[in-house]
C-alpha cells in the first residue's frame, strides 16, 4: 500500500471514529478540512461559518505563536470559551477541529480517537 493510500485510509478510519463520537451529548461537532475537501458535522448548522472561521484562525495563530516561542511543530491547539472548547490538530495533511463542551476531557477523547 502506498503512503498516499495509507493516509487516505487513516482519514477514513478517523472519519468513522468521528461519526461514532458525534452522537455524544457533550460533542458539538467537528470540521475535518483536507487539501481538496472538508467534512463538517455540527449539531447547529447555523454556526458552520462562525465555527469554520474560528477553527481556521486558531490553526493560523497557533502556528504563529509556535514560531514566536519556538515550541516546535504544533501537536494540538485548545481554544476555550465560556462553556465550549475546540481541540484542533493536524492529522496527516488534514486540519481537524472538534467542538465540545468545556467539561470534556479532551486528552481522553484524543486517546479514544487514536490521535495521540
Amino acid at each position: 500500500m502506498s503512503a498516499k493510500n495509507k493516509s487516505k485510509d487513516d482519514i477514513e478510519v478517523l472519519q468513522e471514529k468521528l461519526q461514532s463520537i458525534k452522537g455524544r451529548e457533550e460533542i458539538i461537532g467537528y470540521i475535518l478540512r483536507g487539501p481538496n475537501s472538508a467534512s463538517i458535522d455540527l449539531k447547529d448548522p447555523t454556526k458552520i461559518v462562525d465555527y469554520a472561521i474560528l477553527s481556521a484562525t486558531a490553526f493560523e495563530e497557533g502556528q504563529n505563536i509556535s514560531a514566536m516561542f519556538e515550541i516546535g511543530e504544533v501537536d494540538s491547539i485548545i481554544t476555550e470559551g465560556e462553556d465550549t472548547k475546540i481541540m484542533s490538530m493536524v492529522v496527516n495533511d488534514h486540519c481537524l477541529s472538534i467542538f465540545m463542551e468545556k467539561n470534556v476531557d479532551h486528552d481522553k477523547l484524543c486517546k479514544n480517537l487514536n490521535l495521540t
Binding site: K47, D50, Y51, I53, L54, T57, A58, E61, G62, I65, S66, F69, E70, I71, G72, E73, V74, D75, S76, I77, I78, T79, E80, G81, E82, D83, T84, K85, I86, F99
Partner: peptide
Amino acid sequence: KADTIGSLKAFYVNGKEG
C-alpha cells in the same frame, strides 16, 4: 472570532518542544 463560543477564555498551543 470567538463570540460563537461565548468569548475567549483561554488558548493553549501544544508543540513538540514546548
